[in-house]
C-alpha cells in the first residue's frame, strides 16, 4: 500500500431497510475485482466475507458503509455501521451463536455461521465494536 496512485478504492452503501436488496455491494465488488484480474479463488473468498458482512449489517445494524481497496497484492474490506454494537466479539465468532430472530432464519440466515465464516475466509480480520455506537470490521485477503 505504498503507492497511493495505484490503490483502487471503492465505497458502497448498504441499505439497512431492504433485506431483498442485500448483496448489492458484494456483487459490485466482485465485478470490480474481476475487472482488475484478481484470481477467482481470492475473489470468491472476498465475496463471501463481504456478503456475510453485508447481510449482518442489514440484519443487525440497519445498514452501513463498505469500503474496498486493492493495492495489487491485498484486498482490504472495511465495513462500518452505527448499529447496537457486538457485546462480545469472541462469542460472535463462535459457530452457532446468533442473536438473529426466527424471521431472519426463515430467510435462510441467522444460523450463527456468518462471523466465523468471515474469519475463515479472510487472511486477517479485526473487529472494533462499541455498544450503542457501532462496529468496524476490517478484513484482508492476500492475492
Amino acid at each position: 500500500m505504498s503507492a497511493p496512485e495505484h490503490i483502487i478504492r471503492e465505497q458502497y452503501t448498504v441499505d439497512g431497510d431492504d433485506f431483498q436488496a442485500a448483496g448489492g455491494a458484494s456483487s459490485a465488488m466482485k465485478k470490480l475485482l474481476r475487472s482488475l484480474g484478481v484470481p477467482p479463488d481470492a475473489i470468491r473468498r472476498a465475496a463471501i466475507c463481504m456478503y456475510e458482512g453485508e447481510i449482518n449489517m442489514v440484519i443487525h445494524a440497519n445498514g452501513g458503509e463498505a469500503e474496498v481497496t486493492f493495492d495489487g497484492g491485498v484486498i482490504t474490506m472495511t465495513l462500518r455501521d452505527t448499529g447496537p454494537g457486538i457485546p462480545d466479539p469472541e462469542l460472535a465468532l463462535r459457530e452457532g451463536w446468533s442473536t438473529a430472530t426466527d424471521a431472519i432464519r426463515d430467510l435462510g440466515f441467522g444460523a450463527g455461521m456468518g462471523m466465523p465464516n468471515m474469519k475463515r475466509n479472510a487472511d486477517e480480520m479485526t473487529i472494533n465494536s462499541v455498544i450503542n455506537q457501532g462496529t468496524v470490521i476490517v478484513m484482508t485477503i492476500r492475492v
Binding site: 433485506f19 431483498q20 442485500a22 448483496g23 466482485k30 470468491r44 463471501i48 447481510i55 430467510l107 435462510g108
Partner: peptide
C-alpha cells in the same frame, strides 16, 4: 437445490460461483 425462495438465494449462488 433449495426450497427457500428469496433474492438472497441467487445472491448466494452468485457469491459461490
Amino acid at each position: 437445490l433449495t426450497g427457500l425462495v428469496n433474492p438472497q438465494v441467487i445472491r448466494t449462488a452468485e457469491m459461490m460461483d
